[in-house]
Write a protein that binds this DNA or RNA. Structure first.
Lengths: 121, 121
DNA sequence: ATAATATATGAACAAATATTCATATATACA
DNA sequence: TGTATATATGAATATTTGTTCATATATTAT
């Protein structure tokens, strides 16, 4: 009855073993998959999307962003940290004020591709 | 997901009101922001990224994917529904077997941009 | 020095999410 | 008709995540 039990979780029979093995051998490294999922995760929130859109128009300080989105300074600061962690934004200080900018061009590209997708259906 | 409260939360002074107003007037429609965040959210999970990578190589049935990722058929099926909901994948049935494929080209493009970003640091 | 302001952060809480488990549906075959 | 197989799905649970609250840090002005 049981063909192969090498995979404890899969409770169905493998239909196309050749394809499965070929895909398995090409699967991106766990590190890359992790980084990529963290990147997309950071884009998967409306607040952060709004922040990124804002920064694509102008550099802005934390206070500007909080006012724009009508949210607390703390909430914005927490979200900016998320965006810093995946290097989507960077900042520079001028006195007490911290100005945020987009970190690289990929952001705009990814953004545009995403909009293409959601608008094209 | 994102909760909207009525109370004004910004507890700091607006520094650059002109910029804030200009950005506010250009902010994408809530519908688009919602769809876009749902799209990226669906990409922000390692299991789903693996599924999408697999499907970028070959169409695969649910059973294949479960075997490939060493996960239960149920877990894969739930994740495929998420991917269907944002139209990243589609399927066709052959008898009992359901084959999944990528739904459009944007996926590969977004994928590539994302990898560019995480690899370029 | 003190006060005021801009931002960051840890802890707590509520909401969202991924997986498991049990079960339902659909198809094929004897 | 039955049984077996492939997939889907609702409910429950455990983990993750976004925001709030209180407070800390850093900078400027007095």
């Amino acid at each position: 009855m049981n063909k192969k039990k090498e995979t404890p979780h899969c409770d169905c029979n493998v239909i196309h073993n050749d394809i499965v093995e070929r895909v398995r051998s090409e699967m991106p490294a766990p590190d890359h998959l992790y980084d990529l999922s963290e990147l997309f995760k950071s884009l998967g929130d409306q607040t952060r999307l709004k922040i990124l859109f804002a920064l694509s128009m102008n550099e802005m300080c934390v206070c500007d962003i909080a006012a724009l989105l009508d949210m607390s300074q703390s909430a914005i600061s927490h979200q900016l940290r998320v965006l810093r962690n995946v290097r989507l934004v960077r900042y520079h200080k001028v006195g007490k004020v911290v100005y945020y900018t987009l970190d690289d061009q990929h952001v705009n590209e990814i953004f545009r591709q995403g909009l293409d997708h959601v608008e094209h259906q």
